[in-house]
Nucleic acid binder design. Structure first.
Lengths: 355, 355
DNA sequence: GTTGACTTCCAAAACGTTTTGGTATAACCT
DNA sequence: AGGTTATACCAAAACGTTTTGGAAGTCAAC
């Protein structure tokens, strides 16, 4: 039903070759012919058949992204924003975005295989990197182009963008100590996740600089959801020796922890300090507003996407491995500050990596 | 590089035709040949070339979804969950999911056109339906298969799933009145959105049954974000004649409203009641936990996706137009209740529409 | 009036499938 | 024997592009 090159060729009385080359602006087509072809193409509302092009070019012009979810229902708003960043940049650069969802149980590379088979995608963006990530081994062994947000343990002989989680946690430690908190607990995700170790270690080191020892029995493991944060915070807070500050490794768990504290009648910011990580939009609107580590998620998504597309197109990357420095956003969940209203959102990467 | 039918054919000494038919389990291939072909295919790690198949079959086996965002950064967690529902169901049924992002400013059908051209997708799932939605006219005029979540004003001669927003709001009205609130304001989204009218009208009707008139000057317009809810709630609450209850048309705006109230020193649930709509996961973890209207978002996503795929494959739909009855989830944002801890999440559609 | 350069065009092959319309062989009836 | 039926196979066309390797024509230079 839709018009093809053949239809145009018939109309202008030229060959399919010439029409194709006219539309692609080759210079072995006369200006008059080009004009005519363009006119007829317009008239017939011609759109090249994507899959025919891809078959012929052996390129899919599509990038793949596996959207992580915790169980069917829960997904971190972090990834929505990341997705928006990828999607808008991809569209801008003429690429399609193929999305698949994957729950954390399904840890294999099935979703990756599904996308890869039949050359559906030219490359991947990967997130939630594990310390030893079999997906990376798989993609490396198949010689697939990809880029990760976050990096694994070991040599990391692939391009990635990561945030300096240890640095972020040091900022948190400084702030908590400055606000007068010293009995500090932490809610961390699965230690298999690559960033877990770095964040916990950053916290430990940051506290150590102030002469405070992070008691490892106060480092709980959870699943990055509100529910998880709630449960672990509750365990911490009803113990014999409850902490006065809880450092959560993402905002969702921080919200859960706030919920647990409030349920126990504690006032967050006074009786107990709570911090997050990521600065998702909700962080400015919780009660109290959450002090957290800011990451310019949307921009990172776009940046990673652009790097991947450069790789796919065979360009040299300016920097293969980028570490971003996150910043501390002080709100009220660790006690008094001057700010009272939700601040306007300020976007921006660390100075070293302006886009 | 990857193996093709031709490679297999060469190895087994049969024609490409036979190999193709063997792999597709046609019965004009001998069992021995089939077994042999399968074995060789396995050995060569054969995967059919997706785009060649799609070109030949003139079907993309892909569905399109435009992910709505409010500005670059903000997206409603509602849609993440909806997306997960679509994505998992699509994968299950062997379809790809092509996602594009679209900010609300970009109201045209550019994103739809982009996906449609070149037959990239076989059909669409549409959300955020407008009262008069030009996207629908466009898709109808192009004879494209699609399904919407939400329906527009007028005849709606297309398949859709919608929730009974008026009913949901009536539940809210009943609850607020029962809790003793009578000075009631509302924060609604853009009246161009189809559900706005139905929800506001439902609220009005529900209050009217209790002899309460909804003052239309107390119905504010906002943009479905926390920020928007915050701003409008602030206006309401610092007015001469502030409401004692604020009914927000989605959870995000309710969170913003709570934030505004708390900033003004009000205790939510006592000085002012606040309700939401959607019951996103965060609703159970706000402070206080949010009383809201529950929609089984993940299931709805899956349901809509399955309906679309049925349509694409030419099957008859059992029901073309489905209206779901949402339920009220009482937490603490409208005052005392018995429940104290975040309840375990219970999934389920209204009884009429179990999946 | 031959040579070379340039311009404009195109037939055919290719990408990897599926489908169409067969053929060849064997087996089974009368 | 001739005729039918079933089984197993396949060559070729088709899907809609892009690319390859020319060909034909014009024009200027010698």
């Amino acid at each position: 039903m839709p018009a093809t090159l053949k239809d145009i060729a018939a109309r202008v009385g030229k060959s399919v070759t010439t029409v194709s080359r006219a539309l692609n602006d080759f210079d072995d087509v006369s200006p008059e012919t080009k004009a005519l072809v363009l006119e007829v193409a317009e008239e017939l509302d011609y759109q090249p058949h994507t899959y025919a092009q891809r078959l012929q070019k052996r390129r899919s012009e599509t990038i793949g992204f596996i959207f992580p979810t915790s169980g069917p229902r829960f997904s971190d708003p972090f990834f929505s924003e990341f997705l928006a960043g990828i999607g808008n940049k991809a569209a801008l650069l003429g690429y399609d975005l193929l999305v698949s969802t994957q729950s954390p149980e399904e840890l294999g590379h099935e979703a990756y295989r599904r996308m890869l088979e039949g050359g559906r995608v030219d490359g991947f963006i990967m997130v939630r990197i594990h310390r030893h990530d079999s997906r990376i081994d798989y993609l490396l062994s198949r010689n697939v182009t990809f880029i990760t947000f976050g990096c694994s343990e070991g040599k990391n002989n692939f391009p990635f963008v990561d945030e300096d989680g240890a640095h972020g946690m040091r900022l948190v430690a400084d702030h908590l100590v400055h606000q007068g908190f010293s009995r500090i607990a932490c809610i961390a995700p699965n230690p298999e996740l690559a960033f877990t170790g770095r964040r916990v270690e950053g916290l430990r080191a940051g506290l150590a600089e102030h002469g405070i020892t992070l008691d490892m029995s106060q480092v709980m493991t959870s699943d990055l959801t509100q529910r998880g944060g709630y449960e672990q915070a509750k365990i911490l807070l009803i113990s014999n020796n409850p902490p006065t500050a809880i450092v959560a490794c993402n905002d969702l768990m921080a919200f859960g922890a706030m919920s647990a504290a409030q349920e126990l009648g504690l006032t967050v910011g006074r009786d107990v300090a709570i911090t997050g990580f990521d600065d998702i939009p909700m962080a400015a609107y919780s009660h109290p507003p959450l002090t957290t580590i800011h990451q310019p998620i949307y921009k990172i998504g776009g940046m990673v996407c652009e790097m991947l597309i450069n790789l796919i197109e065979g360009d040299q990357l300016e920097e293969e491995q980028i570490i971003l420095s996150p910043t501390l956003v002080v709100r009220q969940s660790c006690g008094e500050t001057l700010k009272l209203e939700p601040e306007p959102y300020k976007e921006g990467l660390s100075k070293e990596h302006q886009l």
